[in-house]
Every structure is written in C-alpha cells, then in structure tokens.
Design a protein around this nucleic acid. Structure first.
Lengths: 239, 239
DNA sequence: CGCACCATTGACGTGGTTCAACCTTGGTGG
DNA sequence: CCACCAAGGTTGAACCACGTCAATGGTGCG
C-alpha cells in the first residue's frame, strides 16, 4: 500500500466543514480558539481498524470526512453494526477510556480528535458544550431506537430501502435524480441490517428491477422518487 | 375496575428507594430539598397508556416502582419495544415536549415527575445533574446498542435467554435458585425481542425442558445456574 | 493481462411465522 | 359455590422468507 501522510494540517475551526453541525456548533469564537489549541486531525485508510472492542481509546472526537462503522462481535464471529459514523458525528465517551465497540474506517476517513482528559475538562468548564453533547447523545439514542425497529420488525426489502433512504438523506448531492455514493460494501450493509451479503444483493437487484433505484457501478445509487423509496421502507412521512 | 387513589403521597427524597441510582444520585441535601418542592408522584394501573407516540409529554421523571415499556409502531400494526423501564430509569427528554415513543404501564407503576420547564432549569443551573443525565443517556445508548445485537444476530432461543438474564440481573430476589417475577406478558416479551408470541412460548418451554430455568405460574421464573443461562444467551462473561 | 476482491445469481435447507385448536387461570355472576 | 367466560398461554402443522452453499460474473489494480 502506498504510504501517505496521515497527519493532515487541520484547518482553522471557522473554516471547518462540520463547524455548525458537530459538538462545536454552539461554541463562540473564544471557545473555538481553545478548541484550535486542543485538536488534532488524524486520518485512516479504508479498511483500517481504528480501535478494537475493549481497547483503550485515549481520545474522543468528531468525524470530519469519510465514514466509519461501530460494530460489536460475538465469540462465534456473528457481527452487528450498531452505529454508522458520518461527518459531524461524535465518537467516544468522555467518561470512559475503553471502546465498547470496534471502530473501522469504511472509507478513507478523517477525525478531529481531542485527548480525553482535556475534553472532559472542557465539558466541565463549559455548560453549553455539555448540553450540546447531551443533545447529540439523545439524538443518537433516538437513532439507535429507530434502528431497533428496522432490525426487529422490517423485512429484508424494507431494511435495504431504509438504509438507502438514510444514506440518501444524509449524503445525497445531485437532484433529479438524487445521487449518492454508498460508503459501505455489501458486506458492511449486511452487517448493519442483520442480513447476509446475498440477501442484500438480491434486494438491491429487486429494488432496481422495480424501478425504485438505479445503480452506478458498485457504490453509486440513484433515486428519482425518494418518497416511493421511503414508502418501500415503510417510513412514516411525518418527521 | 376498582378505583384507587393514584396520587400517592411522595416520600421524602432521602427515604426514596431509588435515591442512589436515579437522576438524583449525585445531589446533595440542599439540592434534594429543591427536588422535594418540584416533584410529584403519579401512578398508573397495569395496561394503561401513559402517552401515545407523538403526544405532548409535559413532564419528565424517574420510574420509582413497577415497569413500563417504550414502543414504536408502524402503520400496519407491527410493533417493536425500544426500551424497558425499570425503577431508577429516566423518562423523557428535557429538550423536547413530544414523546417519540408510546409509553405503557407493563405493571402497576409509579413515577416521580417534574414539569419539563422546571427540570430544564434545574439541569442548566446544576452542572453535575446535567452530567448525571448525560451519563445515564450514554448508558441507555449502550444498552440500546447491546439490544441491536440481540435483535439483529441472535436466534430465538438466545433472544429469550438474553431477556431472562437481563430481568434476573436487575430484579432477582432470592438466591439458590434465584427468582424473579417477569414484568412482561408473553406478548410484551415478543414485542421486545422481535419475535411472535408463539415463538417466545416455545422457547420458554424449551429452556424449561432443558433444565435451564423453572417456571412458576405465568410470571415467576427460577434459575439455578445463571452462568449456564448466560451461556445460552451467548453473552460474554467479560463485563 | 491476470489476479484478487467484491458482487450477483441459483438451488436448496431451515428457523421462525402463520393459522388454528386447545389448555389454564382468575374473575364474575347466577 | 361453582359454572362460565375472557384473556393469556401452549402446542401442532404447514408455509415461506431468509440463510447456506456453491458457481459465476464483473472490476480495479499491479
């Protein structure tokens, strides 16, 4: 593998692409300066393991670009994804120094990291940062519970459609038809959905055959009618 | 139905059974006095709906005794439990006034409630209460992710065993054999586990037949060897 | 060009659901 | 007091969605 420089120069916070969505969203200019001094950018290549389940994780931080996965495995090898990390998502617990899940780079990925002790001090000094962390944690909890519905009650077709809708909503670029690059292999999709690779593949083919999505190579997906795909995922239009 | 008085006199916080495990665990005596003035006890009978999904929930609070369930339903009626509330668990979001899930009393249940606005002020005035809320939310998130593993990857037998282990761990009374009262009907168990009533019933029978548990009436469960039951649930002994 | 690696497709097996009958238990009223 | 009933729970038989196993197809990289 070609070696690359993985310690990128970090941009100033005010120029950061996740400035208004990440943990720092509610910080003023003064606090941003404090963050500048604390932060380190660090990148991993696709496929690299960032931490193993149970290992010491000496930092916490935000994902700036790319995609990482949170997974848990059983002794016999069965694996379930429990979180999909996209830009602005927060990783790690300020109050625990061991990772509860394995974190893997699903694509090349860059994090904005803080050493835990420093971050914990920041949280305790700055109530609105703690409240921001609380809000983000509660949103994650809601997302996890939403996913419990997917895992427990949806059919394979609905599961795949649900995942595609989620990814299109968060990362779609073009319009008519909207388009996104899947950050996951079929295997990673299967691990997320509690299915096998084969079932994911068959359902992707079926959704394409039924005109609900288009496929471009292995990773590109197109969707001319997101509402129809949402209906297929049995997602209520309400929220 | 016999009418009962549902507005119980609340005990003083210092005599409260969940004093050291609930949101108030880190409060000193002075803050406990503030809580005394804010709190209201309120009870619901088994089967009553406490709030419907999407309804206004004007309070937040802790469950003091009994058991309640958090569920979400799809339009066609498929239902998934996303949380099981036992004494000391916290309910509601301080920053949102609508319930994201239906809350139902699984047994007769008593809550210690605070009006949202007052509680939100308390959280903002008292950093260590906010940190306590954050810690409890992160623990809930871990529990939800643990449950994603159960829903996505475990067999019916492992699912049922996992639920029994959870309940025995949190509510078991006797020892040799340990004993607990199931706070859930078979239907509620099925909704929690992403299974049908029939499958739950068959797996309960199978676990009894295999000598891993004993059954006393509809609700009583006995377990002479919790480690064996945990092995059946494929739970790593580690944590 | 050729080798990995990822993805697709097919044939077949099976764990869990579905549908239906029956059993148990606790509560109610004659 | 006990017959009856409703609700919850158990059991059986048939079905099917998804998993398993195996072969084939595509694609990007050295």
């Amino acid at each position: 593998m070609t070696r690359i420089d993985l310690s990128l120069a970090a941009p100033t916070c005010s120029a950061c692409p996740i400035r208004h969505r990440a943990i720092c969203a509610t910080c003023g200019d003064d606090e941003l300066l404090r963050l500048e001094r604390m932060k380190t950018y660090r990148s991993w290549r696709v496929g690299q393991t960032i931490v193993m389940e149970g290992d010491v994780l000496p930092f916490v931080g935000s994902i700036v670009s790319g995609c990482a996965t949170l997974t848990r495995s059983m002794e016999d090898g069965r694996t379930q994804m429990v979180g999909l990390l996209l830009p602005s998502d927060f990783v790690g617990r300020h109050d625990r120094d061991r990772a509860a899940y394995q974190i893997v780079a699903a694509t090349d990925v860059t994090f904005c990291l803080f050493r835990r002790a420093e971050f914990q001090q920041l949280v305790r000094d700055t109530p609105h940062v703690m409240e921001r962390l609380l809000k983000m944690s509660l949103d994650e909890l809601d997302a996890a519970r939403e996913w419990m519905m997917v895992l427990g009650r949806k059919t394979a077709r609905e599961k795949v459609a649900s995942l595609l809708v989620n990814i299109l909503r968060r990362t779609a670029t073009d319009v008519h038809p909207i388009r996104a690059e899947l950050p996951l292999t079929r295997e990673a999709m299967a691990i997320y959905l509690g299915l096998t690779i084969e079932t994911v593949s068959r359902q992707m083919t079926a959704l394409r055959r039924d005109g609900l999505i288009g496929l471009e190579g292995r990773r590109g997906i197109l969707c001319a009618d997101l509402a129809a795909l949402q209906a297929e995922a049995e997602i209520d239009a309400a929220p």
